[in-house]
């Protein structure tokens, strides 16, 4: 298995390389630069700034320089937050985003999977319709609607929880719930569908024909098969959740890294944007690998080859 992990990680290097290259040239192709302010800077200052950040060199040289630094784990200085390097910003923001996303993921998995299984076992009955309804609700209501409503309801009107900010566990409740809601909905739907299909499979019929109690039929012979599509979904979903959400971080005033992407792109903070792209790509690679390992552990028909 170690060989499989190493091979997969080695296989991911070209993908990350292509992603970094594409992203680099795309953001550089965008019109404007990091120092274009409302009032144009003095040409001399501009020249100095460009020289300081190597922006005066040909693009390909800048690219090679960036790539070289990246290989040494250096994300470079931020263009717009000049006292910080990109690594500094991530060192502060990433733990916040990962905590938030991880809790949301956990909540979504527990609640979503339970609801999905419940709905499948009560297919076409009240509980099933309720879960399907809630799931559709969760998928359709955008989080930038949920977030202010929750904040207003529990933060301002009821005063039970802080309406925004970061620091205590109480601060985490509303943002985690906001982040988890759509994931709960998706996981519940996936689990429900997969469980219904598994319940109809021939091997579940065999288990029932051999008088195994419902508990064993469901837990042993249904859930393991039903969790497979959820596992595949979780890879990309986890990568997205753990790297922060711009909406939730903005509304609740949370110092995560989700905001950096949008802010960096709009301000042409090239290193910040590239840093975010690299971090996300690494998360995607890691979680796809974890998904493949989990899949192979759950399903003996899948082997570590290829």
């Amino acid at each position: 298995m170690l060989g499989f992990v190493l091979r997969r990680l080695a296989g991911a290097i070209p993908t990350i390389f292509i992603v970094v290259t594409l992203a680099y040239f795309m953001i550089r192709a965008a019109p404007g630069g990091p120092f274009d302010l409302e009032r144009p800077l003095d040409p001399l200052i501009m020249e100095n700034l460009n020289a300081a950040f190597n922006l005066d060199k040909p693009l390909w040289q800048q690219y090679l320089l960036y790539l070289g630094n990246l290989l040494q784990g250096d994300f470079g200085p931020s263009f717009t937050r000049r006292d910080f390097s990109v690594a500094d910003l991530f060192a502060v923001g990433l733990p916040v985003s990962v905590t938030l996303g991880g809790l949301a993921l956990l909540l979504a998995l527990v609640v979503g999977a339970s609801l999905g299984v419940l709905a499948a076992l009560r297919q076409n009955k009240g509980a099933d319709y309720a879960v399907v309804g809630i799931a559709t609700f969760g998928i359709t209501i955008p989080n930038f609607v949920v977030a202010p409503i929750l904040s207003l309801l529990f933060g301002v009107w009821m005063g039970w929880l802080p309406a925004g900010g970061w620091g205590t566990p109480a601060h985490m409740v509303l943002p985690v719930v906001t982040l988890a809601l759509p994931q709960i909905a998706i996981i519940a739907r996936l689990t429900r569908g997969a469980t219904i299909e598994a319940l109809r499979s021939n091997h579940v019929r065999t288990a029932r024909a051999y008088g195994l109690p419902t508990r064993v039929v469901v837990i042993t012979h249904t859930l393991r098969a039903a969790i497979l599509p959820v596992v595949s979904y979780l890879g990309p979903a986890a990568a997205a959740l753990l790297t922060g959400s711009v909406v939730v971080e903005t509304i609740f005033g949370i110092p995560g890294i989700g905001r950096y992407f949008v802010q960096g792109a709009l301000a042409r903070d090239y290193t910040l944007v590239m840093g975010t792209v690299v971090v996300i790509a690494i998360f995607v690679v890691i979680f796809n690998l974890l998904v493949d390992i989990a899949y192979a552990l759950l399903d003996p028909r899948v082997r570590y080859e290829r």
């Binding site: 499979s201 021939n202 091997h203 579940v204 019929r205 065999t206 288990a207 042993t220 012979h221 393991r224 098969a225 759950l298 399903d299 003996p300 028909r301």
Partner: peptide, 9 residues
């Protein structure tokens, strides 16, 4: 082919 659970020995 399908009467046995593919996930268990």
């Amino acid at each position: 082919m399908t009467s046995l659970d593919p996930l268990y020995r």
